[in-house]
Design a protein around this nucleic acid. Structure first.
Ligand code: MN
Ligand code: MN
Ligand code: MN
Ligand code: MN
Lengths: 221, 221
DNA sequence: AATGATTTTTAGAGTACCCTAAATATTTAT
DNA sequence: ATAAATATTTAGGGTACTCTAAAAATCATT
């Protein structure tokens, strides 16, 4: 069985390669895990016998299918636990990540099977991220950033790009959550901020940063 | 924060001193944690600066109030998770211990507060063991072993002394669980086994070993 | 009180993971 | 193409936890 540390390395490599399209390099892994580059090199060398990834000196690392399988199952567990924490225990979406980081390492196949059933086989987590099924398949969705919508276009919030606490709390403050309706009133050229109509009632001015991090499913009329 | 290993040591010391009335000795701790006596001595020496327990060479170890507090909270977490696994996820009582051993180390006060509320503030776990409340108080109960009942006395199963899988599965096999009604039909002198009437319907012959490990709340007529 | 059995500690060493500082390889800018 | 900047690896070492074998202390028996 893989140690918690090993699991965190594999997951980090998966997330970095997913975002970067290409091998995960040492510094990126170090940053992701808040550790030193030297520790990463050390770990990659020790782990490379275990067939989770291909590692070539100075060229970074990418996962084998065994590594992808492991990362996917960890993400599945992480997101299922987040659903549990929000839907059943009543946490808000900005409070669950760190707890799920711990829960995802609990080792029991039966536990995840039963948890998944108990939650009703959810397809998305509280941040709108897809939950891979037991076979590792993600349910993808048509989504675009709020920023990319044209004037007068409408849609519904279905996810957030980054789920860091400050951003989620910023959204809480404006009462924006998954399912919130959005209509673009105007783009402000000066700073790329946007005027939007929220839930058909409230007019808001949202920054470029916020609009680029909000995922919307367009309403097609 | 205490490491998972440290937590397991403190919990082991608590359980041993609770059972033995007196200091926990090295071999007992080693047996409880499936490790070597040498490792235990080493660990006790390293940990003794942290004020969880008093350690005197060759004389064993006993917890300080800080150590007792920590052990109690771990037991609280363990037992609450067991209730969750049985009541919500549908595990049977012989399947939950190992999973709860992992879950008890997840670190979040808010999580336990919310889990406890979600479960309805249970007082007992699936094995009939009392769950300490947030202040560490156990709800004790009048209970005796089935073995100690006299002929014709009646009662209800409220707990098991040891909750090892084989014993629990043995009880499953006879359909004996918490709440099962028991009436003593006779004590067999030869091997101290007992004839009992289960749930007013089934007659069973139970071994001395089983009867000494079943806790009963007597029905007072 | 002495002897033997048992328990505990010490000695010495190994693995997993982490660090800083220095060396080296790679990339970028001139 | 060379120099400078950046990324990565190596060198050397540290902590937490583990082990076996041997030494020492305690306990039990006579
Ligand atoms: Mn998360
Ligand atoms: Mn999430
Ligand atoms: Mn248990
Ligand atoms: Mn229990």
């Amino acid at each position: 069985m893989a140690s918690e540390t090993e699991e965190n390395y594999i997951k980090a490599i998966f997330k970095i390669t997913e975002k970067n399209q290409g091998a995960a390099n040492t510094n990126a892994i170090a940053a992701h895990l808040s550790t030193s580059a030297a520790s990463v090199t050390d770990m990659l060398k020790r782990l490379s016998s275990k067939d989770y990834f291909h590692y070539e000196k100075y060229k970074g690392v990418y996962l084998t299918s065994k590594g992808i399988e492991m990362a996917t199952q960890l993400i599945r567990k992480h997101r299922l636990w987040e659903v549990f924490l929000v839907d059943k225990l009543g946490f808000s979406w900005d409070q669950v990540h760190d707890i799920a980081e711990q829960l995802e390492h609990v080792d029991s196949d039966e536990l995840i099977i039963k948890l998944d059933a108990y939650l009703g086989h959810p397809k998305y987590d509280p941040h709108g991220d897809p939950i891979p099924n037991a076979e590792g398949k993600f349910t993808l969705r048509n989504q675009v950033t709020l920023q990319s919508l044209e004037k007068n276009e409408k849609g519904t919030v279905v996810g957030v790009r980054e789920n860091d606490t400050p951003f989620l709390q910023y959204l809480n403050h404006f009462n924006i959550k998954l399912g919130t309706k959005m209509q673009v009133l105007s783009h402000i050229d000066y700073d790329h901020s946007m005027k939007v109509l929220v839930d058909d009632t409230v007019e808001l001015l949202l920054s470029h940063k916020a609009c680029s991090n909000l995922f919307i499913k367009k309403t097609t009329l």
